[in-house]
Simulated scan of single mutants.
Amino acid sequence: MSTPYTEDCISFTGIFGEPVGFPMLTDPLDSFMRRHELGSGMKRGETIKSLYEPGNYLYLQRDFGARAFFSGHAFVPLDETLQAMANIYRKNQQCLYKDRARIKINIDALECTFVAASTSRPLFLRHPITGIITKHEHPYPAFPTIRLRTADPIMVASKACYQLSTFSQKRPSLLLQFQRAQDYFFRNPPIGWFSRANRPAIPKPPLIPAPPSVAASSISPLHCAVRPAMSTTTPSTQHPRLRKRQRDTALSGECPPTKRSRGAPCIPPRTNPPRAAKNKGRTM
Rank of each mutant, 00 (worst) to 15 (best):
I267Q: 12
M230H: 14
E137V: 00
S11E: 00
S231P: 09
L164S: 01
F32R: 06
L78I: 12
A142T: 12
G253K: 05
R270A: 12
A68M: 09
I10W: 07
P205L: 00
Y57V: 01
A215E: 12
H73C: 08
F143P: 07
A181P: 01
K49V: 13
P240G: 07
K280Q: 09
R34S: 07
I146T: 02
F75R: 00
L96I: 00
G253N: 14
N56T: 06
A109S: 15
G281V: 13
T47D: 00
D8W: 02
R282A: 10
E7A: 09
P221I: 09
A66G: 03
R243M: 05
Q177A: 10
Q61E: 09
I10P: 00
P200H: 11
I129Y: 08
P228K: 12
I132V: 10
H136M: 03
H138M: 01
P23M: 07
I10H: 02
R171L: 03
P203A: 14
F75C: 02
A68Y: 04
R243V: 09
R187M: 07
K91Q: 15
N87H: 08
I129V: 12
K49S: 12
F32I: 03
K49A: 10
P257E: 14
Y97R: 08
T134W: 05
V76T: 08
A276C: 07
R245P: 00
L78W: 00
E53F: 08
A215Q: 09
S71K: 13
I129H: 04
K135V: 10
A74V: 08
I103K: 02
F16V: 01
S218N: 11
K159T: 07
D99R: 15
G192K: 11
G39M: 03
N106H: 11
